[in-house]
């Protein structure tokens, strides 16, 4: 299983790398349209999907546990969002940024063990799997929203039909709804497994912070005075908060905290 995983994982990384290369070469030479960068990315996505299915079958559960699988899943959503924007809004100029984010997630994933491990009783529940899957899908979409925010702040054109506002809106909106489900599933799981749907553990508290933060963003995203650069800043800060909740807390409290 580990060799199949490594092969498919590496292939998807290579395809995404090729996609980036094709984009920059076509951009520089203008010999071919930039949109052909989408095809290697589709091949990468195919590898990721096959890997997901194989691991799902091998482990008999949705493969979203551990560093490797969660980052794979995050990258999958980033690529799906990038491809959707490319096909729907011709956002080929935004494409390399999203592919770059997916590559970063996959490189980070490579640091985790690739073996398929059985679920321990504490996480052997659909609630946990839904919780993790929706969280990481949301993290990916919040990342995409932040990237669109950077494009808009810098005045770069991501899509020739000026769909950037629509793209940031859609990423935040779907990300928020997925994250809401993550909170619902996580709270029910905490109630059944740990004694309460609200615990004072720091990771859970920061998830609430993230949820409330994006609730706030959702309420101002369409208001006059907010949907320009303030929304871009909110999207970028939101992703920084996401990274802190996911990575920063783990690093900050690594030494002695038993509950992270």
């Amino acid at each position: 299983m580990e060799s199949t995983t490594l092969a498919l994982h590496t292939s998807s990384l290579v395809f995404y790398g090729v996609s980036l290369g094709v984009y920059f070469v076509t951009r520089a030479t203008r010999a071919l349209p930039q949109k052909i960068a989408v095809w290697p990315a589709l091949a990468g996505l195919f590898c990721q999907l096959v890997l997901l299915l194989i691991r799902w079958k091998a482990g008999d559960h949705l493969p979203v546990t551990g560093l490797f699988e969660t980052q794979q899943f995050l990258a999958l959503w980033v690529i799906i969002a990038a491809l959707y924007f490319a096909f729907r809004y011709w956002a080929y100029n935004f494409f390399p940024a999203a592919v770059g984010l997916a590559i970063a997630a996959l490189v980070f994933a490579s640091r985790g063990p690739m073996a398929v491990t059985p679920l321990t009783p504490a996480i052997d529940t659909p609630l946990f799997l839904i919780h993790i899957a929706t969280s990481f899908a949301a993290y990916g979409l919040f990342g995409v929203a932040a990237l669109v925010g950077v494009y808009r702040l810098m005045g770069w054109s991501g899509s020739p039909i000026n769909a950037e506002r629509r793209m940031i809106d859609e990423s935040i909106y779907l990300g928020y709804i997925l994250f809401t489900w993550a909170m619902i599933a996580g709270s029910l799981w905490a109630y059944l497994a740990w004694g309460s749907y609200w615990t004072w553990r720091i990771k859970g508290l920061w998830s609430w912070i993230l949820w409330f933060y994006y609730s706030g963003v959702l309420h101002v995203r369409n208001r006059s005075g907010w949907h320009g650069w303030p929304l871009d800043i909110l999207a970028i800060v939101g992703f920084v908060l996401t990274l802190f909740t996911y990575l920063g807390l783990g690093l900050l409290f690594k030494t002695s905290h038993p509950l992270l």
């Binding site: 508290l205 609430w208 912070i209 409330f212 933060y213 609730s215 309420h219 208001r223």
Partner: peptide, 19 residues
């Protein structure tokens, strides 16, 4: 909603720093 958003931001800052 802006009132709510201001309260939300204060809530996040308080819980974040306090925790």
């Amino acid at each position: 909603p802006v009132t709510f958003v201001v309260l939300t931001i204060l809530w996040c800052v308080d819980l974040g720093a306090g925790s």
